[in-house]
Amino acid sequence: MDVSVSRRANGDVPVVSVSGEVDVYSAPALKDSLTGLLKSGVSSVVVDLTEVAFLDSTGLGALVEARAATTEAGGSLALVCSQERILKLFTITGLDGVFAIHATVDDAVASISS
C-alpha cells in the first residue's frame, strides 16, 4: 500500500493528512510535502495520522525533521493519532514526550491556536 498525503486548512492552521503505509519507500513523499509547506512560510502544522496503517523509523525521522523545522521557525507541529499500534511506536521510541499527540484534528488545531 502506498502513502497518500493531502493538505487542507483548519482555520489558520494547515493540516497534512496522511494515509497508507509510511515506510522507507514512501516517507520521502511525506517529508517533501512537509518541507514544501514549511518553506512556503508556514510555521505551525498539524499532521493527521489517523489513516496510517504502518509507520517505520523512516517515517518517524520525517516527522522529527519537520518538528525541528517548525520549532526553528517559532511554531509547532502537532500530531493526530488514535491507533494503538502507532501510538505504541511513539511510546517505545520515547517520542511521545517530544510530540504533542492528540485524538482529533480539532484538539490538535486548538493546541496550536491557543
Rank of each mutant, 00 (worst) to 15 (best):
D56T: 07
S19H: 10
L77N: 00
S26G: 10
A78P: 02
R67K: 15
G59T: 07
S19C: 12
T91D: 15
G75Q: 00
R8A: 03
V16F: 03
N10S: 15
F90I: 09
I92A: 12
A62H: 02
A53L: 13
H102V: 07
L77W: 00
A29G: 11
V98N: 10
T58M: 12
L38F: 01
V22P: 00
V64M: 05
S76A: 13
A110P: 09
S76F: 05
G97Y: 04
A78E: 08
L49A: 02
G59L: 10
F99M: 05
A103K: 13
G94C: 05
S33Q: 13
E21G: 09
S43W: 07
A9P: 00
A69S: 13
K31L: 07
V52G: 02
D23N: 14
L95N: 06
G75Y: 05
S113R: 15
T58Q: 08
S44C: 04
S44E: 03
M1V: 13
I112N: 01
V45A: 03
V24H: 15
I101C: 04
V64A: 11
G59R: 08
G20A: 08
Q83S: 15
R67H: 15
A29W: 01
S43L: 06
K39Y: 05
V105E: 09
G61P: 08
V109T: 07
K88E: 15
R8F: 05
K39P: 09
L95T: 07
K88S: 14
A78S: 10
G41L: 05
T50R: 14
H102F: 14
A27E: 01
T70D: 02
R8S: 07
L79Q: 01
E51W: 10
K88Y: 13
L49R: 04
P28N: 06
V3R: 04
T58E: 08
K88Q: 15
I112S: 04
N10D: 14
K31M: 06
V52C: 03
D23E: 08
V47T: 02
D32G: 06
P28W: 01
G75S: 01
A73G: 04
K88H: 14
A73D: 03
S82Y: 13
V98S: 11
V13E: 00
V98M: 08
P14I: 02
K31E: 15
I86L: 14
S76M: 06
G11C: 09
D2T: 14
A108T: 06
L77H: 00
F90D: 08
S40E: 09
E72H: 09
G41R: 04
D106V: 10
A66H: 07
Y25C: 11
D32V: 10
V5L: 05
A53N: 14
G20F: 11
A100E: 14
A110C: 09
R85I: 13
V47Q: 01
S19F: 06
K88T: 15
S44N: 04
V45Q: 02
A100R: 04
D2K: 14
L30M: 11
T50P: 02
G59I: 06
V46E: 00
S33K: 09
S44Q: 04
